[in-house]
Design a protein around this nucleic acid. Structure first.
Lengths: 256, 256
DNA sequence: CGGTGTGTTGACTAGCTTCAAAGGGGGTGG
DNA sequence: CCACCCCCTTTGAAGCTAGTCAACACACCG
């Protein structure tokens, strides 16, 4: 499956520079030679079109994937058949890590727009990470990071108001795009309101109302899918805010 | 840190049999010799008493931990200083995986009762997993599993009613205890109602009312912290149920 | 034996969902 | 290229779930 295409290693290397695998490879002093070994097992797929599936639930894990450009959403189906979005994946981010444990994808991955993808055959990645300890360490880090962000998101869903959720969502998109060199304050939301609502555990109507409210508060400007953030600090404040009231005093003092 | 104690390998091996590291080690044909190498780096800590911390947020990652007996809760503090429980860890389960990415524990871990713990120095575990590919694979699997259960839990928080959440929680405890050879239908909830509510994103009062309701429905019997499940299937049904209505027809048929 | 913390129960409230309907773009077909 | 249609989005009003507030019951502990 997926015959490794011969690629221009120079350009691929450049591409890898903005990828999460890069961040997590080079800093540890993985040598040039080893980097080339890694790059050799990575192949590009032909771009996905909007609504194309990268994989579906139940498919065996062949590879993990990195988004080169575009957006991918991952989702599962609940017992009663409705969709639950588990994440949006922006350029430089990885998908498919949740499939390692059973060797089968527990969720589906679908492009929200034209999207290009790097494919990293998992068995070969594992082999390589035995030979390159730095790579193994980085894989552990990447997976740990995902566990951490999932925990953070659980807090969002469990404790935060609808306002805080949407604000945090926008801040998350902003930050992640910013890390990859895109604008933090102007971007397109490639997902529908429905997707956002689904992801945040809210009703579509609530999300729509919140966009309107944020705009009238001067925090953001909304032009359909195009968002301009006017007040990053303000938005962050809304995101961090306690659902009902903020004591303001004795911050971060847990007590024994 | 943590001078490796000389242990009776025979008894430790036995202990490891009911541990998640075991499940995820032996099946892959890790040899006896390699298993001994693993066991040699694992040390026991002296038991934790109720309310003792295993680690606190901000502490550097020295080791990951496995619960031998007892229960541990992990939690973070929100921006405004209130506790958010991220998980309960039963015998045989691992803690601390979320600390790998930054080398620092993002959350706290605290014993809910007298608890004994195995400590696995992470740097030595990493070294070992380079030498034992099967071990590396199992670590990937364990972390992947955690990502997967986190995603599942996100669905619970985002889409399910309070009833479904508590039912799913009880089923989760039941299943996990059952996997370790404990009773699936009779157990002590070592965590307080407050902890349960916090974890599930509910108010304490709601949790209390739900326990009463489940009892009057004949699903469970509640005697303070001691729970008897009378109807596992019924509880599962409540857990899986759609918050409002259940279509009942066309299950699991996504459509393209 | 009181004190304290934990758990339960009731009444009220708020926030979000649901239901309903209309506006607006983008895509498709003629 | 235009027109139609569908779906996404927005807005309004009503309803319900779960949260909040308050008071009490119960065990556990010193």
């Amino acid at each position: 499956m997926s015959a490794p295409k011969i690629l221009d290693l120079g350009s691929l290397k450049h591409a890898c520079k903005s990828c999460s695998l890069h961040d997590l490879c080079l800093p540890l002093g993985v040598g040039d030679e080893e980097l080339q070994m890694l790059e050799r097992i990575i192949s590009r797929r032909k771009p996905l079109q909007r609504r194309d599936h990268l994989y579906r639930p139940g498919e065996p894990l062949h590879a993990i994937y990195a988004v080169r450009s575009g957006t991918v959403k991952t989702y599962t189906l609940t017992d009663d058949g409705q969709e639950q979005i588990t994440g949006f994946h922006l350029p430089g981010e990885l998908l498919g890590l949740d499939a390692i444990s059973d060797g089968v994808h527990p969720c589906a991955a679908r492009a929200l727009e034209t999207t290009s993808i790097c494919e990293i055959p998992f068995d070969r990645l594992e082999e390589l990470s035995v030979r390159i300890p730095g790579l193994q360490h980085q894989l552990f880090r990447i997976m740990s990071r995902e566990i951490q962000t999932d925990e953070h998101f659980m807090m969002l869903l469990g404790k935060k108001s609808s306002e805080a959720r949407l604000a945090a969502f926008l801040m998350s998109i902003s930050t992640r795009l910013g890390m990859r060199g895109f604008s933090r304050t102007e971007f397109n939301l490639t997902m529908s309101r429905n997707d956002i609502a689904n992801y945040l555990g809210l009703a579509v109507e609530t999300v729509s109302r919140l966009f309107t409210r944020f705009q009238s508060l001067g925090l953001i400007q909304v032009q359909r899918k195009f968002i301009t953030i006017h007040d990053l600090e303000g938005l962050q404040a809304v995101a961090g805010a306690h659902p009902v009231e903020e004591p303001q005093s004795n911050r971060g003092c847990p007590g024994p």
